[in-house]
Design a protein around this nucleic acid. Structure first.
Lengths: 155, 155
DNA sequence: CCACATTCCCCCACTTTTCCCCACGAATCA
DNA sequence: TGATTCGTGGGGAAAAGTGGGGGAATGTGG
C-alpha cells in the first residue's frame, strides 16, 4: 500500500497520533518513512517551524531545493531576511534513529506546544507535527468550508 | 444491469448499507468494486473526508489527478495550505483485502462518526461513506428541494 | 587536562495494531 | 436443491509504536 505501486508519487498523506516520550523522541509514522528517502539508507530530514504554530518536516532533498531557491534570489531585502531568520533560524537537521524516531529539540518542542500526544499530518511534499488543540483549530470545518469555496475555482 | 452494457461509464451509483466490524473493516459493495479498477488487479483507492461530515473514496487514478493539480499550485499560499491540511491531511490510501474490504483508520472512523452501520453512497466519480443519521440530515427533502431550485438553470 | 553532568543513541522488551487467511451464513441463480 | 456469490466474523502471524536501561559522545567547570 502506497509503497511499491510503481508510479505512485512519494507524497505524504494522512494523519497519525503518536507520542513524544520523556526523552523528547517521537516515532515517524512508517508510511512517512517510506516517502522520506530512497531505499533503506540515510533517511535524513530537516525540521523547522510554521507560522501557524506547528513544526514542518522536509526530506533533506526537498529542503535543499528550497535553500537553493532562497540562495539564488536576486536581492536580499528586509522581508526576505525576516523570512530566512524564521525558516532557517529554526531549522534543525537530523536523521532517524534505528527505531525510526527523531529527537525534537527543546526549542522546537516549545514553539509548537508539543506535550505527550502529537499529530503527524501529511501535506504532499512535507509533513507537519501538531499539538492536538492547535490542529483542531487550524482544520475546523468552518474554516475549511470557506477556504474550499475560494479555491474551488482552481480545480 | 449497468455493468457490462458496453459504453456504460464506470460511475458509482446507488446506496448500500454495510457494517463496520470490530476491527474497523468494511466490505466495499460489489458494484463499486467493479467500478474501482481495471480487471482484477490492484483495486487501490484513497479515502479522505468531506466537510459535510462523511468520508469520500476515490479510485487511485482519480485521486492522483487531484494531487497533480494541487501540486502545481504555489505551495506557500495559506489558503492552499489549509486546504491540503484538510484533504491530504486526512487521506488514507490502501487496497482491498482478499474479501473486498478496506480498513477505515480510527481517525477517519471518528471524524465521520461511523459506528456499526454505515451507508455507501455512489456519486459518479467517487463514493461516500456515511453515518446513517448524518446522511439523513444531509439528504432531507427540504434541503434537496431548495438546492434543486438553485441548480435548475444548469441542466 | 581531568572529573562530572548531560545529552544522545543503541539495544531490548512489551503492547497494540494491521493484515492475511480460513470459515460460516444468507441470498441468488440455475 | 445444489452451487456460486457476497457480506460478516474471527484466529493468528507479522509489523509498528512505546518505554526504559545503559554506554558513548559531548560539553562544562574546576
Amino acid at each position: 500500500m502506497g509503497k511499491s505501486g510503481g508510479m505512485w508519487m512519494a507524497f505524504f498523506r494522512g494523519r497519525y497520533l503518536h507520542s513524544l516520550d520523556a526523552k523528547g523522541r517521537v516515532a515517524i509514522p512508517q508510511r512517512f518513512r517510506e516517502s522520506l528517502g530512497g531505499g533503506d539508507e540515510a533517511l535524513r530530514l530537516v525540521m523547522t517551524v510554521d507560522p501557524e504554530g506547528c513544526l514542518v518536516v522536509y526530506p533533506e532533498a526537498v529542503w535543499q531545493e528550497l535553500e537553493g531557491k532562497w540562495h539564488s534570489l536576486p536581492q536580499m531585502n528586509d522581508e526576505l531576511k525576516t523570512y530566512l531568520r524564521f525558516m532557517v533560524g529554526w531549522a534543525s537537521d537530523g536523521a532517524l534513529d534505528r527505531q525510526g524516531r527523531i529527537l525534537v529539540p527543546p526549542p522546537l518542542r516549545e514553539y509548537a506546544g508539543l506535550e505527550h500526544d502529537v499529530w503527524f499530518v501529511g501535506v504532499l511534499q512535507n509533513f507537519e507535527i501538531w499539538n492536538g488543540d492547535r490542529l483542531e483549530k487550524a482544520t475546523g470545518r468552518d474554516r475549511v468550508r470557506s477556504v474550499t469555496q475560494k479555491l474551488s475555482g482552481l480545480f
